[in-house]
C-alpha cells in the first residue's frame, strides 16, 4: 500500500531512525524513573520517595495538584510531597507521578496527538486496567493504572509523523481485516508496540510495564501470561467500545477473549459492570484532568 502522496514528509523507514529523527519525543524524567524504582523497592522509605519527586519542581507541583483533587478524595489538604506520600501511599504516588509525567507524551495541545485522542485513551485505559485488576489483586491496581497510561506511548511517536495517514490506514485495516498494528507493520515496517517498547527499554522501565507496552494487542503470545497485560488488553477494548480513544487505530483491533476468560470476565454482564466502573472512574479522572 502506497503512502498518501500529500504527506508533508516521509515516515522514517526504520525504528531506529524513527526514534532518532522524531524531534518532539519527550524524555522520561530521571525523577519519574527513580519514583518508579523506589515505589517497587520494599526497603525504600516514604521520605526517599518524596525526595525523588521533589528533585523535579514541575513534577512535584503537578503531584500536589493531583493529590489535592477530588479524584483521590483525601480528607485534608496535601501541602507537601511528603504529605502526599504519607496520605496516598507509595503505590498511588507512583500512579500520580506517572500521570503527571505522561501528559507531555500525549499533549492535548499538540495537534496530531489531540486529533488522535491519545491522552483521553491513555487515561481511559489506565482507569479501566485499574478497575479490572482491583477485582483480582488490589495490590497491583496502581501498577495497572501506570501500565494503562503507558501502553500507547509508541503511538504518540507514530502519529507525530503520520497523523494525516490515519484515516487511510484505518480504511485499509477494515478492508483487509487486519488490526491497525498489523497495518502499521506492513506500511512502516514497525508498529506502535515496537516503537513503545524501544522507548521504554531506553528508559529502563520495569519489565512488567514493558510487557504491557509490547504485548497489549497480543496478550496470549507472552511466554507466561500476565494479569497486567490481560487487564490493559481488555481495558483497551472496553475503552474503544465506549468511544474513549477511537482516534488513532479506531476500532480496528482483534480482541483476545482468552484474556477475558483469565480475568474471570466470562459473560457480557461481567464486562458491562466493569465498563460502568471504568466509565465512572474515567469521568472523575477526566474532570481532574480537564479533559471534558
Amino acid at each position: 500500500m502506497a503512502l498518501p502522496a500529500n504527506s508533508p514528509r516521509r515516515v522514517p523507514t526504520t525504528l531506529k531512525q524513527l526514534i532518532e529523527q522524531t524531534p518532539a519525543i519527550p524524555s522520561m524524567s530521571t525523577a519519574v524513573l527513580e519514583v518508579l524504582r523506589l515505589a517497587g523497592d520494599p526497603d525504600s522509605s516514604a521520605s526517599h520517595l518524596a525526595d525523588a519527586i521533589s528533585v523535579d519542581a514541575a513534577l512535584a507541583a503537578r503531584v500536589l495538584r493531583l493529590a489535592n483533587s477530588a479524584y483521590y478524595g483525601l480528607p485534608r489538604e496535601v501541602a507537601t510531597v511528603q504529605d502526599a506520600v504519607t496520605l496516598l501511599g507509595r503505590a498511588t504516588v507512583r500512579s500520580v507521578a506517572m500521570l503527571a509525567a505522561s501528559y507531555p507524551w500525549f499533549d492535548a495541545e499538540d495537534e496530531a496527538t489531540a486529533e488522535c485522542n491519545l491522552w483521553e485513551h491513555a487515561v481511559g485505559v489506565a482507569a479501566g486496567a485499574e478497575v479490572i485488576v482491583r477485582r483480582i489483586d488490589r495490590r497491583l491496581a496502581d501498577e495497572a493504572f501506570c501500565a494503562g497510561l503507558l501502553h500507547n506511548i509508541g503511538m504518540s511517536v507514530i502519529v507525530r509523523w503520520a497523523a494525516d495517514k490515519v484515516p487511510t490506514l484505518i480504511q485499509f485495516s477494515v478492508q483487509k481485516k487486519l488490526s491497525f498494528h498489523e497495518t502499521e507493520k506492513l506500511v512502516f515496517g514497525y508498529n506502535h508496540m515496537e516503537v513503545g517498547s524501544a522507548l521504554g527499554a531506553d528508559w529502563n522501565l520495569p519489565p512488567r510495564l514493558l510487557d504491557c507496552i509490547a504485548m497489549h494487542h497480543e496478550p496470549s503470545k507472552l511466554a507466561r501470561t500476565s494479569l497486567l497485560v490481560d487487564a490493559v488488553h481488555v481495558a483497551d477494548y472496553l475503552c474503544k467500545a465506549l468511544g474513549i480513544g477511537l482516534g488513532a487505530e479506531n476500532f480496528t483491533i482483534q480482541v483476545d477473549t482468552s484474556s477475558m476468560d483469565r480475568l474471570g470476565l466470562t459473560n457480557p454482564n461481567d464486562l458491562t459492570r466493569v465498563q460502568a466502573d471504568l466509565m465512572s472512574r474515567f469521568r472523575s479522572a477526566s474532570e481532574l484532568l480537564e479533559l471534558t
Binding site: S173, V174, K177, L178, S179, Y237, K240, A241, F251, T252, I253, Q254, V255, T257, M260, L265, N267, P268, L271, T272
Partner: peptide, 16 residues
C-alpha cells in the same frame, strides 16, 4: 454499534 474486527459470535464482542 461498532465492534472489533474479530467479533464473531462471542456476545462479549458484540455489545453494539
Amino acid at each position: 454499534g461498532a465492534q472489533p474486527l474479530n467479533a464473531g459470535e462471542d456476545p462479549r464482542l458484540r455489545p453494539g
